[in-house]
């Protein structure tokens, strides 16, 4: 029989280390926001330097300063406002149609097995067709007015939304549905209080994704045939090598995309505050 202390003495002392604690790390010398803003600022400055020294010709890419003046001019003329207005209307109309279609189809096929049998297979088949590839057909069917652009956006929005909402509905925790039944909730109550709220997070993921594809569809629709809108301005600028106007138009697309993303983020904050999900370190 050996005692604990005898056994301990027989062994070599264990290697130890002092673990780092939060306090020792101290505050970062350079604030994080500064580092984050500095890198894009440096890139723009570099771009300006290249343009000013003539290394980057105006025909290839206008300088940031020129882009800013052009933007101011376009704003003063009202070009920006009217182009954005037209493009925004197309996107909003397309998203509205796509949203309603996707919600109706996904709810029917998500909630009812018969609905799935009828709806899901054709939707999955159509989903594999690249939406952009439909442009020639859409032009034949709807001409070159607003309709083909709106339909293109609606189609681009429908599929990702459908997939996510359908998946969300089918991922509902069955034990919660069961609990709801024991509480006396009928079918409608189960859908309203359990199934739809539970599918909400994934629906919002789909919404965010489909907003992205909506802008993509808009860009395609507008650059191929249009007589107004951001894409039209960009196409006209191309013919005259106005790289400054093109950059302004790209910035407008980016800003609008950012706006859409911001709206979905707000929706997420409002609808998903109940979530116990991991929110990052």
């Amino acid at each position: 029989m050996t005692t604990t202390s005898e056994r301990a003495r027989a062994q070599a002392p264990p290697a130890v280390e002092t673990l780092r604690t939060v306090r020792e790390r101290g505050p970062d010398r350079v604030p994080r926001w500064l580092v984050k803003t500095a890198s894009p600022v440096v890139l723009v400055a570099l771009w300006q330097v290249l343009s000013s020294t003539g290394l980057l010709p105006r025909d290839v890419l206008a300088s940031p300063a020129t882009v800013l003046t052009t933007a101011a001019d376009m704003w003063a003329e009202g070009t920006v406002q009217s182009a954005v207005g037209v493009s925004l209307l197309r996107v909003v109309a397309g998203i509205a149609i796509g949203l309603v279609t996707a919600v109706v189809l996904a709810t029917l096929s998500g909630l009812f097995r018969r609905g799935e049998d009828v709806i899901d297979a054709p939707v999955q088949m159509l989903r594999t067709v690249p939406v952009i590839g439909l442009i020639p057909l859409l032009i034949i069917w709807f001409g070159i007015g607003e309709e083909p652009k709106i339909v293109l956006i609606a189609l681009a929005v429908t599929f990702p939304l459908y997939m996510n909402l359908f998946g969300g509905i089918r991922n509902v925790d069955a034990t919660l549905v069961e609990a709801a039944r024991t509480l006396g909730l009928g079918w409608f109550g189960q859908v309203r209080h359990v199934i739809l709220p539970s599918a909400m997070p994934q629906f919002l993921v789909g919404l965010r994704y489909s907003l992205g594809t909506a802008w993509l569809a808009l860009v395609f629709g507008e650059t191929i045939n249009a007589t107004s809108g951001i894409g039209y301005e960009m196409n006209t600028a191309r013919e005259f090598f106005q790289t400054d106007v093109i950059v302004v138009c790209l910035a407008l697309y980016a800003l609008l995309g950012l706006l859409g993303d911001g709206i979905v983020r707000l929706l997420e904050r409002g609808f998903l505050s109940w979530r116990p999900a991991f929110s990052g370190r």
Partner: peptide, 16 residues
């Protein structure tokens, strides 16, 4: 089996 998207008190009276 509380519904995570409803406040605690709403969970309690759910289905009444």
């Amino acid at each position: 089996r509380l519904l995570p998207w409803r406040k605690v008190w709403r969970n309690v009276v759910m289905g009444l």
